[in-house]
Amino acid sequence: MQEFDFVVPKTLAEACQMLSDGYGRPVAGCTDVLPQMRHGKLKTERLVDLSRIKSLAYIEHSNGRISIGALTTYEQMVTDRQLHDYAPVLAQAAATVGCRQTRNRGTLGGNLGNASPAGDTLPPLLILNAQVVLAGSSGERRMAVSDLLLAPGKTALLPDEIITSVGFEALPRGMRSLFLKLGNRQGMAVSVASVALALQLDGGGPVQDVRIALGAVAPTAIRCPEAEKFLIGQQIDPITAGAAGRLAAQACAPIDDVRASAAYRRHAIQVLVKRGLLSLSNDGDSHADN
């Protein structure tokens, strides 16, 4: 592996300072960065290890708003009871990441900063309309997750900025959510296609609110406004769910790679969206596998 400096800030301010010259890269769990560096896909002069900034690992709930520190691990999200109550889709997604060894290390901030199209927490964050809080040498700013993610491996972060937390409103009472993931194997699966859905029906009837986001089928995780708009006011049945699936498939821009072809990814999205909608409208029974 290449040589680099390793620095360990104790505070956020220190961390921003260490990144301010643009030659550094923040890391925490290292589950993505180290393999990339070993392959020479990522080069840096300095790793700034955020993992000692204890104040960044938390899951808080107050007044219907959830705030998750950037250093919160997948495993912490899996086991957090508040998250299961207020944003189960995110906990479900976290549970599908890698294996226990990687879930114990990988962090929510890392999943965002890494900006992989296949990052499993990203579609849930999109349907939660989550905002990230960024700290930089010139202060703090907020940004929607959808604005943060620009392209594979590329975010709107400035070089000296750090993701400190992610915040979102708890899903409204009665809104059910679900994460569906398709991988090429059951264990340690990387998403070939994934879907995060949230659905609120008007008294068990027509759709009052629906949110759909897709993973691994476009340069970034994306929302599907066309499918969502189409569904408002509709009854969910195999026909409308199928139509929404097709709209979602149209919204994606997948690539052919060794994991799957673009055509199959598109097909899978259509199936997953349809299936997710039907499942949520039937019983709200949510399960992360498919």
Binding site: P35, Q186, G187, M188, D256, V258
Partner: peptide, 28 residues
């Protein structure tokens, strides 16, 4: 039967890691 193939990728490099060459795990 289901997963493995040391094949050439689009970039004309071989599948050469456990990231892309999937062998069955305990869950499979």
């Amino acid at each position: 039967a289901l997963y493995e193939d040391v094949c050439l990728k689009e970039n004309q490099r071989w599948v050469d890691s456990f990231t892309e060459y999937l062998i069955p795990t305990a869950r499979d």
